[in-house]
């Protein structure tokens, strides 16, 4: 099952990249589609972020959710330093501290 998913994902991705270079696409992309594609990445990533941070074990949790302070602090660090390693370290450490000391 996982191999199926890996191979199909790879095939989708390759065919997208090959579409115009290889002449698969008959005509240029309509401007509307081009404009919307510009928002695919932010939209998908945000949807995943929101459901990862705010939903725990299939429950929407705001109160007593240690992931929220950890995420917010990491976001502040990301905004200031634009550094992926520092951001992740901050988030994981804060989560760990919140889980063990506060909640």
């Amino acid at each position: 099952m996982i191999w199926f998913a890996i191979i199909i994902s790879g095939l989708f991705t390759f065919l997208t990249r090959f579409s115009f270079i290889g002449g698969l696409a008959g005509r240029p992309l309509p401007p509307t589609v081009r404009a919307m594609l510009g928002y695919v990445t932010t939209a998908v990533l945000t949807a995943i972020i929101a459901s990862e941070v705010l939903v725990i074990n299939d429950h929407f949790i705001i109160a007593d959710n240690p992931q929220i302070p950890a995420f917010v602090l990491a976001a502040v660090i990301a905004l200031i330093f634009r550094n992926i390693v520092l951001t992740i370290a901050t988030g994981l450490l804060t989560l760990w501290v919140c889980q063990h000391m506060i909640y």
């Binding site: 932010t42 945000t46 972020i49 995420f71 976001a75 634009r82 951001t87 992740i88 994981l92 989560l95």
Partner: peptide
């Protein structure tokens, strides 16, 4: 939890 954090670094800019 590193997954949403990683995505956040991409979205933040």
């Amino acid at each position: 939890f590193a997954i949403p954090l990683t995505f956040m670094t991409i979205v933040v800019p």
